[in-house]
């Protein structure tokens, strides 16, 4: 353990996703300065999905979680596109469940993102977020100091 503590490493497993967040952040600032709101919106959604990817971590972004993150971004794009499309093209008032179609996309549609993320977090908690054996190992190695408080 001491050897690992003193070893200087050159890379972190999250470097790539952090660079992507950094790049999208800069792009978002530039887009905002020129009022390019459609690409700004798409960039905002990208930053949020990448932040979730950071939380799940690269070893766990394979398979289902990777596909889920792609689904999340596509869901955002579809909802956004629906809002923009109906807002620009609809003549007169067309209500969907009591709201104008474009507004309905926002209010009813956007919940799919947090609801599905929260559900996935619960479903993969034991397998990917905090496996039981790893919790026990951590508590055995480091779990005493905090308990003093």
């Amino acid at each position: 353990m001491q050897a690992a503590y003193s070893k200087i490493i050159m890379k972190d497993k999250h470097d790539r996703v952090i660079l992507q967040i950094f790049t999208l952040g800069l792009i978002a600032l530039v887009l905002a300065l020129f009022n390019f709101w459609v690409p700004f919106g798409l960039t905002v959604f990208g930053i949020l999905v990448l932040t979730l990817a950071l939380g799940f971590g690269p070893p766990r972004r394979s398979g289902m979680i990777r596909r889920f993150l792609i689904f999340l971004y596509l869901a955002y794009v579809l909802i956004f596109a629906g809002m923009v499309w109906f807002d620009r093209t609809t003549e007169g008032l067309h209500l969907v469940l009591g709201l104008p179609a474009a507004t309905a996309f926002l209010i009813y549609g956007i919940w799919i993102v947090p609801a599905s993320t929260a559900l996935l977090y619960g479903l993969v908690f034991r397998s990917s977020v905090l496996p039981e054996d790893k919790i026990k190992q951590f508590l055995a190695d480091h779990g005493s100091k905090g308990r003093k408080s």
Binding site: T51, G55, F56, V113, A118, Y121
Partner: peptide
Amino acid sequence: PIGFCVSWV
């Protein structure tokens, strides 16, 4: 709500 998810994840 997506903020809740970000915080948790």
